[in-house]
Nucleic acid binder design. Structure first.
Lengths: 200, 200
DNA sequence: CAGACAAACGGAGGACCCCGCCGTTTAGGG
DNA sequence: CCCTAAACGGCGGGGTCCTCCGTTTGTCTG
């Protein structure tokens, strides 16, 4: 199935010994580098034409490697997503459940606030079959962390990893155009973890 | 000066308070009606051309009445904003501080979740001089409510009305493309008001 | 080493959008 | 009934997204 080439192209930034031509690999790398630079400046609504131009590549080539905007964004943020997943599995073994979860949430907030467009890319579900969608990827990685915290009574039992993810990305989205920036995100995160108005 | 409808007064207060020509008023009304319909379908990223087309009006006429996208969105959501402000002042006198605030937050969440594009329009600060920007408008209206709750110890002292507003709109933004919709927003709101992980 | 063939490329072009300009229409006061 | 300023809207330039399609080029094979 043609999906093989796509999956390979997107997620396999590390292992690429596949039936792909050398020039294709080269262009993929140029596109990814250009996309990182452009997204860092313009966020998730970056002009795809501009990315192709920066990479000195035809616009059709970009679309061949990344069929839609979300695919490009996923690739751009893939390393950061991976790092967060690794941190989640790491924290799941150490520390006490509550501080582990909080530390992870804070790391997530930091990433999402500092990388322009990352929060937006976590909310968009563009392709119907997004088994590899960044959001679910992160959610499944964080799930054990949340379950463990729930078991210890550190979070409400009905709170899922997806919920926490949604709240954090939401805060980032709402503060993105906001000048104060990352500091604001951190403040709001503590606000919601402690509770806006907890029952006495 | 302010004899005209509220919606009109809001957008045109700073440009001109003079009596408009009859055709201008008529076109304004048509544009607003068209915008409400289109925004309800396509959200905040609605095509301005499409709005003008639906209103059977030239695109320049739209730009004359609404100099930028945010102005149009502000007008579209003005009634809802007004209603929320009225509710805020109403609740500020009745009920106990905490339930009053919570009720208002819930009402806000409901509005923002049901009206497509409203959350987005609350985050965008397009024009530099937006003293009448919807967000600040709402924030000042909610401020007494928050202060009263803070005085009663129902919210953290460092939480401002703008903070609560940001959190709620953020949740709405993060769940907008999400199929589950308004129910999800409500769930997440209780989650953050109670606290994701309050200290024991 | 020299084809051959599929993989990959990139330009062109259509559809749409935002935006400003500017000539034309028309409402409404004198 | 005019006259003027307010209001209108068409047009064109520049941009993006996206698709098609002819051309180049890597790579595999004989």
């Amino acid at each position: 199935m043609h999906d093989v080439s796509h999956t390979q192209a997107h997620t396999q930034a590390h292992t690429q010994a596949r039936p792909q031509r050398a020039d294709a690999r080269r262009n993929y790398a140029r596109l990814l580098a250009a996309a990182e630079a452009e997204v860092a400046v313009h966020g998730a609504e970056v002009s795809l034409e501009q990315v192709a131009r920066t990479a000195q590549v035809g616009s059709a080539t970009l679309r061949r490697h990344f069929p839609n905007r979300q695919a490009l964004l996923s690739a751009v943020f893939h390393q950061r997503i991976e790092a967060l997943c690794a941190l989640a599995t790491d924290l799941a073994t150490k520390d006490d459940p509550r501080t582990a979860l909080l530390e992870w949430l804070r790391a997530l907030a930091h990433y999402v606030a500092s990388a322009r467009g990352m929060a937006a890319s976590l909310t968009i579900a563009e392709s119907p079959d997004d088994a590899e969608h960044c959001f679910t990827y992160l959610a499944t990685a964080a799930d054990p962390l949340v379950r463990r915290a729930a078991a210890a009574g550190a979070v409400r039992a009905d709170a899922t990893a997806a919920d926490l993810l949604t709240v954090v990305t939401g805060i980032a989205l709402a503060t993105e155009h906001h000048p104060s920036g990352a500091a604001e995100v951190d403040r709001l995160l503590t606000l919601v973890t402690e509770g806006l108005s907890p029952r006495t």
